[in-house]
Design a protein around this nucleic acid. Structure first.
Lengths: 285, 285
DNA sequence: GTTCCGCATGAATCGATAG
DNA sequence: ACTATCGATTCATGCGGAA
């Protein structure tokens, strides 16, 4: 089946109206934070943030499938020495709209920018708010399982030693068998804290998140041929990852530069993606 | 100078009234979370939590010195499939009382409670909310500087590979047990994400936080001979650490068992603490 | 005296069962 | 219908006994 990528150029709120009700499986986005990035986006004052975002979240609620998920990446800025409260007010407002606030993941940015202030440390985490339309939603936990921690590693080490001896006495060669069994068993479910580095380079967009971030949520909340929406597309990370993972995607971007940039990059990516599939069928292996 | 430890047995709200205005340098506490410690403490329903805590936070605002800091350790529970909002409502309520919400630290608990559910992962973080009475407050950042590991150098190369696995060992600000292994020369300021394991054993209290947690904040926000207050003393971790770091401390506890337990333990600790000092003076080294 | 392994146990959450 | 209680799930950690 072909993977589609749809791009919309224009204001997020009005472009969203073109999308059908209950048509999207996953929304994942990082909207412009209040008063950040004033140069590229309008820059929204913290006090106006909830009023600005509410009509958008209302549209998102409409287009999301009943079993779908909305992941909102956001962090309040420091205003006059203290944290703003607009994120909390936004959560409360979205709950009134009908959203369920299911969970708050923490994105721990391992390589946050250094800096020194007299009264605070580097801000090295952001919120990843999970909202849902109903209490039942699709979640494919096995897709994001991770290897176990130190305990399992050391245990695996010892096991490989003993298994070596056992295998040598019984069969002869091949410690691969037992180890691979243990490797499979040594997977654990992750927690709600994500450790990812920020991507500082090769993107023109000022605040692109690392590919691993949308990848994790796309794997977790969608399956192949599902539809992913990023209403603040930016440099298009979410869309590229969606395509790579064989998910359809929709992107909305208000700035023509980003829109054109993504549009140009999506087409060669399609060719690149379908080429290996043909080869694979020919060799038959 | 002698280090004093004062203990109060009784209800937090009424006992706090015995303390003088502007008399405490640091408040650090972990109140019973809504409906959690039902067996030991009363258990407060999420809907009533703000009303229950507000009179207490009002007292805390009164007793805190103008340059002091209040660290509140708290996390909302899941209620009927979604996160409760009482922590956010509490922050908004405390701001109305006159508190400044300066910062939110994240306590990442490596060893969070296990479990598997169809719709969520393990909860492995808690909030450490920093409130202040004014925008100018005492902060001794050098006291909590951490050595830098080589993870900072190699982070760019292995990014995609390591992120697929769970990074257990070297994530983040790295206080804990391996400090002695780190190189001394390049010291860095920590960030606002703390990586600490919970203490499961050797305490009779059900939910003592690890000593490193109050230690970090005591070093960061007080100097020697300052006064530290824990209005929900529990097993007394905050007080023991304060004493060890030569800070005066005040503890309030409503349950006589804990009160007596801490009382008994504080006295031998004093003897233990002052003995080495005398020896130190005698040897003169 | 080390190192290693077994085991109990947490600020958890869900779903089913019972009043 | 709505609350209360119980069992099942699962992972890092530290302790004690063993090799």
């Amino acid at each position: 089946m072909e993977i589609k990528t749809e791009l919309f150029l224009g204001d997020c709120q009005s472009e969203l109206k073109k999308l059908a009700d209950n048509s999207v499986d996953l929304i994942i986005t990082s909207p412009p934070y209040a008063d950040q990035r004033k140069a590229t986006y309008g820059g929204i004052h913290p006090n106006e943030y909830v009023d600005w975002f509410s009509p958008i979240s209302e549209q998102l609620l409409r287009v999301l499938k009943p079993n779908g998920t909305f992941i909102l990446n956001i962090k309040e800025k420091v205003l006059d020495g203290e944290r703003s409260t607009y994120v909390m007010e936004l959560i409360l407002a979205m709950k009134k709209q009908g959203w369920f606030w299911t969970e708050e993941f923490i994105w721990h940015k391992k390589n946050s920018y250094p800096g020194k202030w007299p009264n605070r440390f580097r801000d090295s985490w952001e919120r990843l708010l999970q909202f849902n339309k109903s209490k039942k939603f699709n979640m494919y936990q096995e897709e994001v399982m991770v290897p176990m921690g130190d305990w399992a590693k050391s245990r695996l080490k010892n096991l490989s030693e003993t298994d070596k001896k056992r295998d040598n006495s019984k069969v002869g060669s091949g410690f691969g068998k037992n180890i691979s069994n243990w490797l499979e068993r040594d997977m654990a479910y992750p927690s709600n804290v994500l450790h990812l580095a920020t991507e500082c380079n090769n993107k023109n967009h000022s605040a692109a998140f690392p590919e691993e971030l949308p990848e994790w949520f796309i794997k977790l909340f969608t399956k192949k041929n599902d539809i992913v929406l990023d209403p603040f597309m930016g440099s298009g990370t979410t869309l590229f990852v969606s395509k790579r993972l064989m998910r359809n995607s929709i992107g909305i971007e208000i700035l023509p530069e980003y829109f054109e940039m993504v549009k140009k990059q999506i087409i060669p990516l399609e060719l690149h993606l379908f080429e290996p599939e043909i080869k694979y069928e020919k060799t038959g292996s």
